[in-house]
Simulated assay, not measured.
Amino acid sequence: MADAQTLPSLDDERELTSEQVDHYRRKGHVLLRNVASSLEIEAFEPLISEEVRRRNNQDKPLEERDTYGKAFIQIGNLWQSSPQVARFTLARRFAKIAADLMGVDGVRIYHDQALYKEPGGGHTPWHQDQIYWPLDTDKTITMWMPLVPVSEEIGSMTFASESHLLGYISKMVISDESHRTLGEFVKGRGMEEVNYGALAAGDATFHAGWTLHSAPGNPTDRMRKVMTVIYIADGLRIAEPDSNARRNDLKGWFPGLNPGDLAASPLNPLVYSSK
């Protein structure tokens, strides 16, 4: 296995165009090409996939799982269990992009997640990520990066443009009900639905925590391997949890902290600061 110090550093800085930043802030999502190179992905994909294999405890066949279970294999905080993956998750390059898109001076990690959609895996229902997070802010963002080419047949996630401007729309967790109700909401409001289609490994979408999104199933015979990193603005404070989902996230991702505390536990390192 590669030593962490011999892996690509990913700590250079990429400059965004004003058009890319403006698109993200208006639409709540943006696609950026070649955020990581093919050589960088070749170095990190086997390490991330091995960590997913090692930590995955899903043993039910697809047909016996609920909608959420069919959507993907989900493994979080890989950076904590693998120094090699930490080099990817904590990369300054990715973090600066997140900070620049949000227009903040610094960002911390909320957590990372590998989302591997199995061959024949189901769709991901419409939802807002931030209903799970005990934060009252619009300064959160997720990087979603495929580690393998994603064909047009699968595509990226589907985003409801400008939905992030509405803030907290519903407390519904990812479920059949959220897909039906929020899907009707998107259609009823006449929102633009954007799927960026085929992506190369190392391309990445970035979307705001309040942006409504879903993802199609995987009709192919290949695993859709995606790594995500969630960033929050430095200096945020934890909000009073108003749901079980947020109470659980407070315990899991902000251990030892309470409402009103700075959102800065040891699990939330500062990964970029312009100061």
Rank of each mutant, 00 (worst) to 15 (best):
I97K: 06
T228G: 03
V229W: 00
R180I: 13
M157G: 02
R222P: 00
S151A: 10
N56I: 03
P119Y: 03
Q80F: 11
A2F: 07
S274Q: 10
I232L: 11
T142G: 08
V186T: 10
D234N: 08
P266G: 06
D3H: 12
Q130P: 01
H164D: 03
L32V: 11
D112L: 07
R87K: 15
A201T: 07
M227N: 08
E63D: 14
W126K: 07
L236Q: 10
Q80A: 15
V173E: 13
S81I: 09
T142Y: 04
P149L: 05
R53V: 12
Q130A: 06
L262K: 15
D203I: 07
R108Y: 07
R224I: 01
P134D: 08
I109M: 06
R14E: 08
G76H: 14
Q84N: 13
K139Y: 08
R25H: 10
L147N: 04
D59E: 14
L32Y: 02
G256F: 04
W144P: 01
E15V: 12
L147W: 06
L32S: 06
E162F: 05
P255I: 00
T220V: 02
A245D: 13
L199S: 04
W126S: 05
D22S: 14
A200Y: 09
R33S: 12
D112V: 10
I73E: 08
R246L: 02
V52P: 01
G106S: 14
R237Y: 06
A264F: 03
A233L: 00
E240K: 10
D242S: 05
R55F: 14
I73V: 15
L262E: 09
P241E: 09
T89Y: 00
P134F: 12
A114E: 06
R189M: 08
Q80S: 13
F94W: 09
V173P: 00
A239P: 03
G202R: 02
P266K: 13
H179I: 02
T181S: 12
R246A: 11
T228A: 07
L62Y: 06
E153P: 10
W79A: 13
T220A: 03
V271F: 00
A239S: 14
R26W: 01
G103F: 13
T158L: 02
Y196R: 11
L212Q: 02
K27V: 01
E42I: 00
R246C: 03
A86E: 14
L257W: 05
G155T: 08
P125R: 04
N34Y: 00
G197K: 11
H207W: 06
M145V: 04
E42N: 13
G106T: 07
I75S: 03
P241H: 09
E162I: 06
E63C: 00
M191I: 05
N218V: 00
L7P: 11
N218H: 12
R189A: 03
G217V: 04
A2T: 15
I141Y: 11
E193R: 14
E162Y: 09
G197D: 09
L16G: 05
W126Q: 05
M145G: 01
T67Q: 12
V173S: 09
K70G: 08
D66W: 15
L257R: 11
T211K: 07
S161W: 04
F254C: 04
I41D: 02
L135Q: 05
